[in-house]
Amino acid sequence: MAEEGYKERGFFLDPISQVRKKPTKRKEVGGFFSKPTAAVSGFHILHISLEKVDIVVDVLVTNPNPIPIPLVDIIYLIESDDHKLISGTIRDAGTVRAHGSETIKIPICLIYKDVKDTYDDIQPGEIITYRVSVELLIDVPIIGRVSLPLEKKVETPAPYKPDVDLDKIEYDRFSLEETTASLHLKVENKNKFDLGVNTLEYNFTLGDDNIANATLRESTKIGQCGEGILEVPITFRPKDLGSAVWDIIRGRGEGYSMKGKLEVDTPFGPMNIPFSKEGGKEQVKERSRN
């Protein structure tokens, strides 16, 4: 009787009932593995220049299974208005740990020349919308190869080089020993996004003589398709310069040249923009401060 009571409570297991339960257990094994999931978790612009933009797409892959899952291939495609721009495949992209998640980084480089060659109507300075399509191929035990398709829309610019020109020179103090002045540089932003000028590196030459060579740190915001003025102080010793400089200051002579670099902030990240400009004598005449 005691034994029967134990059987009723499950303390003793019937071997026959155990055999009958084996097929059910095999069915549970077949459904033991689950399909991994994936989502685009981030988009980053690593570097932007006048020639190209380097971006990274972050894909978060989650593995709910008790064993690591290998990523076989990652196939990506960049399109805009149904025009294919770039595609590629990343082989053997790694492994997603058991009951865990991994962020897979997909590096992509967009060359502006290729974009412009594809689109006749794209103008420099525009913001372009892209469609990023990603397909992850994963090998899951028992289930087999699984495809995880993803898609995300992103925006990057096709930057236009700002035009830097000398608007005027204003002299604060003029003498043979030391002359101080200010260069008023006009910066024209032809882009459809704002530019925040942080640093200006410049070399200013009158005739064949180098007048100033320095770095100026000044924060100036220039709105989209707008203009701004950078006031750059310079100091030089006229007596140490050639006669050509005096001709230029008097409004005669060949003129000036500028070379340098702007460091700017954009909504898409920082940029270094080189510039060079040559001008005639009429732009470097002395002008008094008001």
Rank of each mutant, 00 (worst) to 15 (best):
T62D: 09
E188A: 04
Q123R: 14
P68L: 08
I127L: 10
L77R: 12
R91D: 13
F174I: 11
D120L: 05
L77Y: 05
Y160A: 15
A98G: 14
P149K: 02
L148F: 10
S49C: 01
L50H: 01
I104R: 03
Q123T: 13
G125P: 03
Y171E: 05
R131F: 14
V96F: 07
T129Y: 09
K192S: 13
R131P: 06
S49R: 10
H184W: 15
N63C: 08
K168A: 12
E151T: 10
E79P: 00
P141T: 02
E151Q: 15
N65S: 04
F174D: 13
E102N: 09
T95S: 13
H44M: 12
P124M: 03
L46P: 11
D117L: 11
I142S: 04
P107T: 12
P162E: 00
D172V: 08
L150I: 04
E188C: 07
T129R: 14
K186G: 12
V132A: 02
D121Q: 07
L50P: 01
D120M: 13
I55S: 04
K105F: 07
C109T: 15
G100N: 07
E51Y: 12
S133P: 05
R131M: 15
V53R: 03
L46A: 11
I111S: 11
D73F: 14
N65A: 05
Y171L: 08
V132C: 06
I108N: 04
D82F: 09
V53W: 03
V72M: 15
K84V: 15
L46W: 07
Y160R: 15
I143H: 08
D163N: 10
A181Q: 01
V187E: 07
L185V: 02
D54C: 06
Q123H: 15
D172I: 10
A98W: 06
V187A: 05
K52H: 04
I78Q: 08
V146F: 01
K161W: 13
I143V: 03
H83A: 12
K168L: 13
H99Q: 06
R91I: 05
D92C: 10
Y130H: 12
H99A: 06
N189Q: 06
I48V: 04
K84C: 12
T180K: 05
E126Q: 11
E126F: 08
P159A: 01
T179F: 01
K52A: 07
P157L: 03
E126V: 00
I108V: 08
I169F: 00
V57S: 04
L166A: 10
T180I: 04
R91E: 14
D114G: 04
V187W: 03
E188I: 09
T180H: 09
P124D: 02
D114F: 07
T103G: 00
I75S: 09
